[in-house]
Nucleic acid binder design. Sequence first.
DNA 1: TTCAACCGATTGCATATTGCAACTGGTTGT
DNA 2: ACAACCAGTTGCAATATGCAATCGGTTGAA
Lengths: 174, 174
Amino acid sequence: MEIERRSGCPINLAMEVLGDRWSLVIIRDMMFGNRRHFRDLLNRSDEGIASNILAARLKRLVALGLIDRQDDPSHSQKAIYSLTEVAIELVPVVAALGAWGRRHLPVSEDLSIRAELLEKGGPPMWEAFMEDLRLIHVEDPIRGANGEIRSEVLAELTAAFLETRARMEAGQSG
Amino acid sequence: MEIERRSGCPINLAMEVLGDRWSLVIIRDMMFGNRRHFRDLLNRSDEGIASNILAARLKRLVALGLIDRQDDPSHSQKAIYSLTEVAIELVPVVAALGAWGRRHLPVSEDLSIRAELLEKGGPPMWEAFMEDLRLIHVEDPIRGANGEIRSEVLAELTAAFLETRARMEAGQSG
DNA sequence: TTCAACCGATTGCATATTGCAACTGGTTGT
DNA sequence: ACAACCAGTTGCAATATGCAATCGGTTGAA
């Protein structure tokens, strides 16, 4: 797949690759939720992506080199999707965009706690996160997809998210 | 104008606001090229935006609070578009996205020199740039639109861009 | 006073993308 | 045998985009 290349400006080219409503949302789910299968991305999507759009986006992101697709050896019909180095290096972009969104858009507390931690952690945390993502997605995608590779950063982010959500639910009912 | 709010996730909400092929490109032109009039954005666009799309995007960005529109006192038909604080705080996002694009996409040298300098300058340079943008867009948008307010950062970025382009043209013909 | 250049858009029309719901052919575990 | 699950695909309506021509008005110079 080729992009249109309306100009050689990096911002323009980035928007030609990521400038739609879904691509970065899918990458976010793979990155922070470790969603690695089609059905996982489809059914556990907070935003309710449609299956045809998910299929089209995955195909496009594979063609553009942001995502790899391989067969899952545990099930002849399953495919494992993994972030490539190109997509892993979007971590600083996602961190900056999350910080901006958290400040200026109507976010919910549970879904924005990870953005808050990522902003506070700064570049050292981003680097550590990217290093973990390389282990989980590039070096051993199969064990990574199975949740068998431990990431300190991911564990911290996920724990904070679950705690916040639990606290919100407790507050709502009590 | 309201966004759809498919979820309260900051990344999702950011993509609902900026997730199209043109919005961030327009903001980039206002930010780095100080393009403040409709015709200016239309005719000096490297990517060749269509007039109806530009009109629709400007209207939408005004409604979302990323851009202000005011009459130009020097010409009864002219309008001045200015970045608001919300859009000015996209500078770190643009810097991160530019750095990523420069590394992984087929950029041209002249159009990516500013992304390179912005990456090297890091957060201190971004803060200085944002401070200048506040003077040019928020505090005195009319003199700002006329190029009467000096920005050290913008001058440095623009000089580097022009030098690179001049060098490329010289190399091409000689 | 005429007139060309310029002002921010709008219109009409063809094509491309998106969203929704139902469905496909096949695999797996019970 | 069979229900649940697998990665998608199909048909169709609604929306968004792209292109070219055009709008009514303003400005500055001859």
